[in-house]
């Protein structure tokens, strides 16, 4: 057992628990919920095992679906985010991201913020398209995506600042 694996397992359980116990119950204005559990996929080590990430994201999403009663919506959204994560990394941090040690849970720079933003928007858009599943509600999908993205990013940044290892 290495510490990276243990850290991932702990993050998986803690984020899922926080999502189910706290964030699923916010229901701001009746339809806005932040989904900070996607932080698991975002904070997964850059050079970590890719198939491991895919499988873990799928099960994270499936567990969310069980709690949320939504079929396979979260599983699909998480899976797509996990699969396209390297591409978003490349876009936000430049081509050489694999050789640098990209640390996400640190002070917020424009690169980190753009990565967070693109990842959350991708996840939420897929999520709401699949959840609503009717093109006649397209406007509804966009409104939900935008509003939920704002709240997810705010909670994500707060969580990152809370769990950030203190170096000073």
């Amino acid at each position: 057992m290495n510490s990276a694996l243990l850290g991932n397992i702990a993050r998986f359980i803690l984020l899922l628990a926080a999502q189910v116990l706290i964030f699923n119950r916010i229901d701001l204005f009746g339809f806005i919920n932040p989904f900070p559990y996607v932080l698991f996929i975002i904070l997964y080590p850059v050079n970590g095992n890719k198939s491991g990430l895919l499988a873990a994201s799928f099960f994270l999403g499936l567990l969310m679906d069980m709690f949320w009663n939504s079929g396979g919506v979260h599983a699909a959204a998480c899976l797509i985010l996990a699969y396209y994560r390297p591409a978003i990394f490349k876009f936000s941090f430049g081509l050489s991201y694999e050789y640098q040690t990209v640390k996400l849970n640190d002070v917020l720079t424009p690169e980190r913020f753009s990565f967070l933003l693109i990842a959350v928007v991708l996840h939420h858009f897929v999520l709401f398209v699949l959840e609503v599943f009717k093109m006649s509600f397209l406007w509804d999908i966009l409104v939900r995506t935008v509003l939920s993205t704002v709240f997810t990013i705010i909670t994500c940044i707060i969580i990152i600042y809370i769990i950030k290892p203190n170096k000073r």
Partner: peptide, 25 residues
């Protein structure tokens, strides 16, 4: 792996949207 899991999750999604079938998840 991605495609396999995606197919599973999408089929769960589609199945959950059809009214007459009860959900697995």
């Amino acid at each position: 792996l991605f495609l396999l899991l995606l197919v599973i999750s999408l089929s769960l999604t589609i199945q959950s949207h059809s009214y007459h079938k009860s959900k697995i998840i």
